[in-house]
């Protein structure tokens, strides 16, 4: 029960401070889930993000469901998901009821100018922390650069990148296995 309410509260905090799409959650999830609670590792977080983009639905929600399920099974998945959507529901409803033309308010626009600067810095610092674990050799560096460039310059769906990178990963590793087996045989 304690873990369930902790999951709800952590994800509500993450949902309430995520500005600009699912990726902005990354620095906060890293802080709360990897560094503080140690419920998941940086590697697992990257896996969930990748799968969250290939499966239908909102990335932030998919990732929350994953972490919740891993931590506390089905009830955990529901708590984390409800947590991540609750702030949105409350804030948007308040705006819809009380404030018209919210997005045109000058204060809001200035605040968002500042927040965007913070989001850039926070994501940059989060991915620098993850770099060592996911870019382990030349193959992963090539995949990283190729995916980053292609997704920036084309409109291709992330699903294509993730699935082809996974297939390439399997092929490369199997080839490596075969060559190392051969070397052993040759040595004999």
């Amino acid at each position: 029960m304690k873990t369930l309410s902790a999951l709800f509260l952590i994800f509500a905090r993450i949902g309430g401070f995520t500005f600009g799409g699912g990726y902005a959650m990354l620095p906060m999830m890293q802080k709360e889930l990897v560094e503080k609670k140690k419920w998941v590792s940086n590697d697992e977080l990257l896996d969930y993000f990748a799968i969250g983009q290939c499966t239908p639905g909102v990335i932030a929600v998919n990732t929350a469901t994953f972490v919740g399920y891993k931590t506390k099974g089905f009830p955990g998945a529901v708590s984390a998901t409800l947590g991540v959507i609750t702030p949105s529901i409350v804030i948007i409803t308040c705006i819809a009821v009380f404030i018209s033309n919210f997005q045109e308010l000058e204060v809001v626009q200035h605040a968002f100018g500042g927040i965007r600067a913070a989001v850039v810095a926070l994501i940059l610092s989060a991915i620098l922390k993850m770099r060592k674990k996911s870019l382990v050799d030349i193959f992963t560096v090539i995949v990283f650069i190729a995916v980053a460039l292609l997704s920036l310059l084309t409109d291709l769906s992330p699903v294509i990148f993730v699935v082809s990178a996974a297939v390439c990963g399997i092929i490369i590793k199997i080839r490596k296995e075969k060559t190392s087996l051969k070397k052993k045989e040759d040595n004999r």
């Binding site: 896996d47 993000f49 770099r131 992963t140 650069i145 992330p158 990148f161 990178a165 996974a166 990963g169």
Partner: peptide
């Protein structure tokens, strides 16, 4: 492979 792609995205 997938982790590197996720990182690229």
């Amino acid at each position: 492979g997938l982790r590197a792609a996720s990182f690229g995205l």
